[in-house]
Lab assay of single mutants.
Amino acid sequence: MADQLTEEQIAEFKEAFSLFDKDGDGTITTKELGTVMRSLGQNPTEAELQDMINEVDADGNGTIDFPEFLTMMARKMKDTDSEEEIREAFRVFDKDGNGYISAAELRHVMTNLGEKLTDEEVDEMIREADIDGDGQVNYEEFVQMMTAK
C-alpha cells in the first residue's frame, strides 16, 4: 500500500514521523504519540494510545517504525480525509473560533508540534493556502489545501 505514495508524500511523512519521534530513535512510543496528540489539544487515554499503536504495529514490538507509519498514512489517505476530520483539524488551528486561521494561530500550532518556523515560513504557508488574498485561511481554503492532490 505504501508503494502507491509519491516521493514527495514519503518525504512529508518522514518529516511528520520525526515530529512524533521525539528522541530520534526511529520508533514512536505511546508516550511520544501522547505528547504530540496533547500538543494538538487531544486528550487520549493510555489505552487509546496503545490501541492506536497496536493498529499499525505490524511486528508487534509495541512501537511504530517508519515503514509501519507509512502504511498507516497510506491507509488513512485511501479513506481520504472525511469532512469531519478536516473540520476537526481546522478547529485545532482556529484557536479563537472566528472561522479563520491567522498567521499567529498557525505559528502557535506548529510551535506546539515542535516545528520552529520563521515568520517568513509561516507567512508563506498562509499565502499558499490563501486563495482570496485576505491574509488568513478560511474553512473553504483549508479544505482545498487539505484535499489538493
Rank of each mutant, 00 (worst) to 15 (best):
M1F: 08
M1K: 08
M1C: 07
M1A: 07
A2P: 08
A2W: 02
D3R: 15
L5Y: 00
T6A: 13
E7A: 06
E8K: 07
Q9I: 08
I10H: 06
I10D: 03
A11K: 13
A11C: 09
A11H: 01
A11T: 13
E12N: 09
F13G: 15
F13A: 06
F13E: 06
K14Q: 08
E15F: 01
E15S: 14
A16I: 14
F17T: 00
F17N: 02
S18F: 12
L19E: 07
F20E: 03
F20D: 06
F20S: 11
D21N: 10
D21G: 12
K22G: 02
K22T: 09
K22H: 03
D23A: 12
D23N: 14
D23M: 06
G24L: 04
G24M: 10
D25C: 14
T27M: 10
I28S: 09
T29G: 00
T29P: 12
T29W: 02
T30G: 06
T30F: 07
T30A: 13
K31S: 05
K31N: 11
K31T: 11
E32F: 08
L33T: 13
L33C: 00
L33H: 07
L33W: 00
G34S: 15
T35G: 03
T35K: 01
T35Q: 11
V36Q: 03
V36W: 02
R38M: 13
R38A: 04
R38G: 12
S39G: 06
S39H: 09
S39Q: 15
L40E: 02
L40R: 07
L40V: 14
G41L: 06
G41I: 03
Q42E: 05
Q42S: 06
Q42H: 13
N43S: 14
N43V: 08
N43H: 14
N43T: 15
T45S: 11
E46H: 06
E46T: 02
A47S: 12
L49Q: 02
L49A: 14
L49D: 04
D51S: 10
M52C: 08
I53L: 15
I53A: 15
I53C: 14
N54W: 09
N54D: 13
N54H: 08
E55K: 11
V56Y: 01
D57F: 06
D57E: 13
D59I: 05
G60A: 02
G60S: 14
N61W: 05
G62Y: 01
G62F: 12
T63P: 13
T63Q: 04
T63W: 04
I64H: 06
I64C: 13
I64F: 13
I64K: 01
D65P: 14
D65W: 13
D65T: 15
D65Q: 10
F66S: 11
F66V: 12
F66D: 01
F66A: 15
P67I: 09
P67W: 08
P67F: 12
E68I: 02
E68H: 04
E68M: 07
T71A: 13
T71D: 01
M72Y: 08
M72G: 00
M73D: 09
M73T: 14
A74N: 12
A74G: 14
R75D: 05
K76F: 07
K76A: 14
K78H: 02
K78G: 11
K78A: 03
D79I: 06
D79A: 13
T80I: 15
T80A: 14
D81N: 10
S82T: 04
S82N: 14
E83N: 00
E84I: 15
E84N: 12
E84D: 13
E84T: 01
E84K: 09
E84G: 13
E85P: 00
E85L: 05
R87D: 00
R87Q: 08
R87S: 07
R87W: 15
E88I: 09
A89E: 01
R91L: 11
R91M: 09
V92T: 14
V92Q: 07
V92I: 12
F93P: 02
D94T: 03
D94Q: 03
K95R: 14
D96M: 09
D96K: 15
G97A: 14
G97M: 14
G97R: 14
G97T: 10
N98F: 11
N98I: 09
N98P: 03
G99L: 01
Y100W: 02
I101Y: 05
I101H: 06
S102G: 11
S102I: 06
A103M: 15
A104W: 05
A104T: 10
E105N: 09
L106V: 02
R107F: 03
R107C: 11
H108N: 13
H108V: 13
H108Y: 13
M110W: 03
M110F: 00
M110R: 02
T111R: 01
N112S: 13
N112Y: 10
N112T: 12
L113D: 00
E115W: 04
E115P: 14
T118N: 08
T118S: 11
D119P: 02
D119F: 09
D119S: 14
D119M: 08
E120I: 12
E120M: 03
D123F: 11
D123A: 09
E124P: 01
M125L: 13
M125V: 12
M125I: 10
M125E: 03
R127I: 11
E128H: 10
A129D: 00
A129I: 00
A129M: 09
D130T: 02
I131A: 10
I131D: 00
D132N: 10
D134W: 04
G135F: 01
G135V: 08
G135L: 01
Q136M: 00
V137E: 01
N138F: 14
N138W: 00
Y139R: 02
Y139I: 02
Y139E: 01
E140Q: 13
E141Y: 02
E141I: 05
F142W: 04
V143W: 07
M145D: 09
M145W: 08
M145A: 13
M145V: 11
M145F: 12
T147S: 12
A148E: 00
